[in-house]
Design a protein around this nucleic acid. Structure first.
Length: 294
DNA sequence: GCACAGGTAGATT
DNA sequence: AATCTACCTGTG
């Protein structure tokens, strides 16, 4: 009965400059996370054991949570999730937009865009679900798996399952959640993680290059998914996921039509620099919005 | 009916 | 090393 649960009064998050509707929408519901839904006047989302609503009022971000929740303030978890300590305005200014009109247009369209800091294990699961699926379908699949296998949350909805829960539940339950061929990869990954306790936690804190190498050992994890997990689930802003959208926009807007993925990775690192992943998110958003050619 | 969707792995050239 | 192709399922 999620809809019957009352929520706490709205509380402002004054130091997170996300005061524009399109940028909030793109940050929460633009493909970084698959656990947010748009409602009249607010977004509602879940991560770990958290349930949260976010809205913009008078150009300021505000949050609310189920009134029944006890314990430590949700604000700390929310600030971590939104990477409150990261100054995206400054990092954006350090991107090469002055000499790159495509990037400049993308940044102008989504001022305040942020890179989320989602739970590492959940990010891995969600992006293992994502291959050749549209965002709406990925969200539907994640919700099905959560309802089937995840722990109940404060409002009666469900968390995503842990990797241990997925390992126990088996591949058939994943197939039932319409995961198709992804079910085998996900279950194999779950079994690997089950037999290697601490492996994922250790991977998360490794330098980006070695963390990526380890993620690539997991069944179903290639370069794109590994980079998404590093960028959206570990705050590694140098990770530059190249999906079909990014490949197309690099091809058309940057004239790199005959470059293979490895060469495009090199281009991104050299051209966009240490925060290439942030540039990627601006460009991805702008391409999907039809603002730049893709 | 059929191509395509925020890919990956394994085979083939 | 570059280029197929199978893999599930929903959508247009």
């Amino acid at each position: 009965m999620p809809s019957e649960v009352s929520f706490s009064p709205w509380t402002a998050l004054p130091d997170i400059p996300l005061g524009q509707e399109t940028s909030l929408a793109e940050t929460l519901d633009g493909g970084q996370s698959f656990r947010w839904t748009k409602n009249p006047g607010y977004y509602e989302g879940r991560w770990a054991d958290q349930v949260c609503r976010l809205r913009i009022r008078n150009g300021q971000l505000e949050w609310s949570r189920p009134a029944t929740v006890q314990g430590p303030p949700a604000q700390a978890a929310l600030r971590h999730y939104l990477a409150a300590e990261t100054d995206f305005k400054r990092l954006t200014d350090e991107l090469p937009w002055r000499s790159d009109p495509v990037l400049q247009a993308a940044i102008a369209a989504f001022p305040g865009l942020r890179i989320l800091r989602q739970p590492f294990a959940e990010t891995l699961f969600c992006f293992l679900c994502s291959s050749t699926k549209q965002i709406a379908q990925i969200k539907a699949i994640c919700e099905l798996v959560a309802q089937d296998q995840g722990a109940p949350l404060a409002d009666g909805s469900h968390a995503l399952p842990t990797w241990a829960q997925i390992a126990e539940a088996g591949e058939a339950r994943l197939r039932a959640a319409k995961l198709g061929y992804r079910a085998r990869f996900i279950h194999q990954t779950a079994l690997f993680l089950q037999s290697n306790p601490g492996w994922l936690e250790a991977t998360e804190v490794l330098p980006t290059g070695s963390a990526r190498e380890r993620l690539l050992q997991l069944p179903g994890v290639g370069r794109k998914i590994a980079d998404c997990v590093l960028l959206f689930g570990a705050g590694r802003l140098e990770a530059f996921p190249i999906d079909t959208w990014v490949q197309k926009l690099l091809s058309r807007a940057y004239g790199l039509s005959d470059w293979n993925l490895a060469h495009l990775q090199d281009f991104a690192r050299i051209h966009f620099g240490p925060n290439a992943g942030l540039a990627q998110q601006y460009l991805f958003a702008a391409a999907r919005a039809g603002i730049i050619a893709a």
